[in-house]
Design a protein around this nucleic acid. Structure first.
Lengths: 229, 229
DNA sequence: CTTTTATGGACCAATTATATACCATTTGAT
DNA sequence: ATCAAATGGTATATAATTGGTCCATAAAAG
């Protein structure tokens, strides 16, 4: 269908573009869209085509059109961080961690200080005392990853990790899995945490990142294993 | 959407501008808006038009108007932990993108569909028509990276990228830099965008990720170069 | 071929915008 | 306490804008 440069835009295409603009927030609630005649000009389509697109969006509930006045946005995109973030599945969450945490390790190597490493060391110790207490281990684990991102001195990354941690704590599936952590898995996590810390201490960014990938792979496995149960 | 200079502003447009100003924090709680006559002058609209805009905002609960006194802001914008995220520096932002986007490329290879690629292709075309319009290019660039993350079908990642885009658009430093993009830099970006898209199309995750790293390195260079000025 | 869709133009009815004038209340200085 | 300036409230006549509709034609899809 749609292959190259200045393709003629159909009603469906235009509707998609406007729908996207609303979802993205470029067009907010109560905003008025440009007049149909302007839209038809800027999209390079006939006015009738634009009208079809708008009628479509109206049926979908994105837009309301008042004769003589204009077409207005009537749709609150579920942006309130709650619904967008709380509906994250554990697998989406794992993918996000896969994106973030290995690189966070690299940045930790660059910006981490002695005090950071001492704190992470202390958290490793705490986790190793928790082989029989999955709940306490889980808390310490969250703290460890938070301490790790704090090494980066990057407020934005810290904020993102905090958001993810919030999802993680509110996610029943993941919480359930944490409660059923067996001793062997916890032991694996512990050695991986230690290895990550050591790699950061000895300023080996790629090694730290790679161990983090292993660590996350382990976590993903235990996640899928739990979901099979 | 609104690009040109002296565009006729309707009541809906003026309402939108003020609504955004309140949401952004430029107008805070209990602040008094300029008199209607001043607003009508500065927006280049008749006073009646401004009044309609204000009446709309009053119905929406953004504003309260007291006869003989003035119009006052009555709305607390949802303070979505904005404080933590709005203070992000451009360099922090780059590090976050370095963490996220290469892996997003890998996920795009896994989950992207034909329609996604078509859209990205279209955005590449749009960007290539913008070598002389840094503002339009910048918008299309943001859309491209947003389209890229949409390939992942991962609501959490999409949300995170949106947050970063919000920071980016509100960050004066970055915006300033976008206004001074030279043709050569834009050309470099364009070839990199194409290469990324092609690598995703041919399902080569690591190649896509690596080109993205190059792309971000280019962006970081142009950022530090601008900060030296 | 038939059907659907898009185009370009014209006109209508409703709404909106403009420009101006004047009133009522508040505010602040005297 | 008083007065003048500033501000929102209202009214009106006119012009401009906007969506709604219809039509003849052309292009694309099935």
């Amino acid at each position: 269908m749609n292959v190259s440069a200045d393709q003629k835009l159909g009603a469906a295409d235009i509707a998609a573009l406007i729908r996207r603009e609303i979802s993205k927030g470029g067009l907010q609630l109560h905003d008025r869209l440009p007049p149909e005649r302007v839209l038809s000009d800027s999209y390079g389509a006939a006015r009738g085509t634009v009208r079809k697109a708008l009628m479509r969006l109206e049926k979908e509930g994105f837009v309301e059109t008042r004769p003589g006045s204009g077409t207005y946005v009537v749709h609150q995109p579920d942006d309130n961080s709650a619904s967008a973030i709380e509906h994250a599945t554990p697998l989406e969450l794992m993918d996000a961690r896969f994106a973030l945490e290995p690189h966070i390790c690299r940045l930790a190597v660059l910006h981490g200080r002695q005090a950071d490493f001492d704190r992470m060391e202390e958290l490793c110790n705490r986790m190793e005392e928790c082989t029989d207490d999955p709940v306490a281990f889980s808390d310490a684990d969250t703290d460890f990853h938070r301490a790790l991102v704090e090494c980066t001195r990057n407020g934005l990354l810290i904020w993102i990790i905090d958001q993810i941690a919030t999802v993680r704590s509110e996610d029943d599936w993941t919480r359930m899995r944490h409660l059923t952590l067996d001793r062997r898995t916890i032991a694996t996590y512990n050695t991986q945490h230690r290895q990550i810390l050591n790699a950061i201490r000895t300023r080996e960014p790629e090694r730290a990142a790679n161990i983090m990938k292993e660590h996350l792979e382990t976590a993903r496995l235990s996640l899928t294993r739990a979901s099979d149960t």
